[in-house]
């Protein structure tokens, strides 16, 4: 994505200038320096995208040659209940994950800002983020297991009922979202904490002189001035959160019924376990459209978020 954003304005500028750029001498050398990026972009983004688009119009099982079927795959996607359910499940995941993660991270960042100077503690909140996703998924799967898991053992000890967590139809996707909230909250908190360092100290001093309490200071100074950073963090976690795959693949594999079958996992299943590559490609094209919409939203938000500090 970054490559497109960079390439576009550059192309426009060269076109607007008078005379062919080749004759001014910088064009060619510029091209030389651009070549690695351009080739990388073509090989790793452009070609796969175009190929995927082509596959989406075919019936292709990876092993035989693709057969063109026109728009059949798209028609099927539109009437596929599991696809729409997967989008819904992914939506629930994203909303729950981003909401809990951001709120908790904000709280954590304020605590780090107001209560501690310890580098040790700041490093510690980052710890879950340093552990590989698959390890975390396995770790929580054992911890949350109903029969031999530690969490249910504790619940029983304090007199509460055992919970299905990952394998309960109502709790499954929320549990997965919580696991990833736990993993990312430290990292997000650190980003927000860094943002807080940009807020001038004298504003806090002024607030204190005026007799503002902790909550009012947070509401009237920290939050508004943190807005640009908060917007960035929100948008980045939104996009990242949308890509949920590994936790599902390791723990529930979409079960029970379709309660945790998120969109990326469904596409993966179709392509690599059921060999419906054409169909999987069609779903991916839908997803591209969705992500383009999200990206436009991202750009709009970032442009709107000029700092209030000026």
């Amino acid at each position: 994505m970054a490559a497109t954003l960079l390439a576009r304005p550059l192309g426009r500028r060269t076109a607007r200038r008078a005379g062919p750029s080749w004759q001014r001498g910088h064009g060619r050398i510029a091209l030389v320096f651009l070549a690695p990026a351009l080739i990388g972009f073509a090989v790793f983004y452009l070609v796969p995208t175009v190929r995927g688009l082509w596959f989406s119009f075919t019936d292709y099982n990876l092993l035989s040659d693709p057969a063109v079927v026109g728009l059949d795959n798209y028609g099927e996607v539109l009437s596929d209940q599991v696809f729409w359910n997967a989008l819904k499940v992914t939506g629930v995941y994203v909303v729950f994950n981003v909401a809990t993660q951001t709120v908790l991270a904000l709280g954590l960042a304020v605590l780090m800002e107001r209560l501690t100077r310890s580098v040790m503690i700041k490093a510690m909140v980052l710890l879950p983020w340093l552990v590989p996703n698959v390890t975390i998924a396995l770790l929580w799967m054992w911890l949350l297991d109903t029969n031999v898991g530690f969490v249910n053992h504790v619940l029983e000890q304090i007199g509460l009922a055992k919970q299905g967590f990952l394998f309960s139809p109502d709790q499954s996707i929320l549990t997965i979202a919580s696991i990833n909230t736990w993993r990312h909250v430290g990292y997000t908190a650190l980003l927000l904490f860094a943002g807080m360092q940009l807020i001038p100290r004298h504003l806090y001093e002024a607030a204190r002189i005026d007799g503002a309490g902790e909550w009012r200071t947070f509401q009237r100074i920290t939050l508004p001035l943190l807005r640009p950073v908060l917007a960035l963090v929100l948008v980045v976690s939104l996009i990242g959160s949308f890509q949920i795959f590994d936790t599902v693949a390791v723990t529930t594999e979409g079960s029970p019924v379709n309660a945790s079958r998120v969109i990326y996992y469904y596409i993966y299943e179709k392509a690599f376990t059921q060999f419906e590559f054409g169909y999987a490609s069609a779903m991916s094209v839908f997803l591209i459209l969705l992500l383009v919409a999200l990206t436009l939203l991202q750009m709009r938000l970032l442009r709107a978020s000029t700092s209030d500090l000026a």
Partner: peptide, 20 residues
Amino acid sequence: MPPYDQAGKLGVTPMMEAGK
């Protein structure tokens, strides 16, 4: 028999070995 949502993915062996 344990509820389906509480059967877990670890397989039946840990449950049997724990005497559950």
